[in-house]
Amino acid sequence: MLVRTVAAAEDAIEWFGGLSLFTGRAVRELFRRPFEFTEVLKQVFEIGWRSAPLIILSGLAVGAVLSMHTRSTLERFGAVSMIPTALAFALVTETGPLITGLLVSGRVGAGIGAELGGMRVTEQIDALDSLAVDSFKYLVVTRVMACIIALPLLTVLMNLSGLLGGYLAEAVVSGASFTFYFRSAFNGLAFSNYIPPTIKTVVFGLIIGSTSAYLGYNATGGAEGVGRASTQSVVLSSIFLIVCNVILVKCIFFLFPGTAL
């Protein structure tokens, strides 16, 4: 039992080491030629653009729900006028980036894992390598780059659609004007509340792209391995994302003390 546990721990550490080396290589390759712009644009289209409807709809729903919860809470303190500010603060600083990362990890992570896993088990990656095409550069780096680019953009969409959903929910209840609502929403925000949380999603993109690409790129065991890689991509990238978010928030508080209100 102990031997199996130790062996499992050694496997886990070995796997995590492999992921770290894989991620480090991906980051390193990001800045090395050749830059596969076309493939990157293609992945941005797949990862970013095709995720936009999901993000916008989710943002509207999350914003509306947050607005309703915020109203019911602030009404107790007679602070209804602070609903736009509170909602914007919650969305921009934490809720928007985290939900965006989780949604993208669910949709994109699974896709990357399944796609690369399928290419691995069908030896397409080996074929690319045999054709002197850097499969890592072509398949992994472009997807990681696309995730890094798409996550902040999707976070912006999530934030604004969330604010819009909150406004719609608030307008139904109180009839607040659009201008007043958005001016009030941004009135309580500082740059330190807006820029660092948005930028941190770059790390979310790196985590989602590298984790799902690693699992798919090293998939084994045929179709079953592809499915396992797809599932593990979603689960592990979400876990890593949530855990890493804690560290990132702490880093933001450290670098921008004004953010930690």
Binding site: G48, W49, A52, V156, R183, A185, A190, F191, I195
Partner: peptide, 28 residues
């Protein structure tokens, strides 16, 4: 078309981000 869409997507999101920055800066 895909490139155009990607351009619109990226540019639009960057624009929205800039709008957010402007609103925050204006409030301050």
């Amino acid at each position: 078309n895909k490139k155009l869409i990607v351009g619109i997507f990226v540019g639009g999101c960057l624009l929205l981000f800039g709008v957010g920055l402007f609103l925050i800066g204006d409030s301050q």
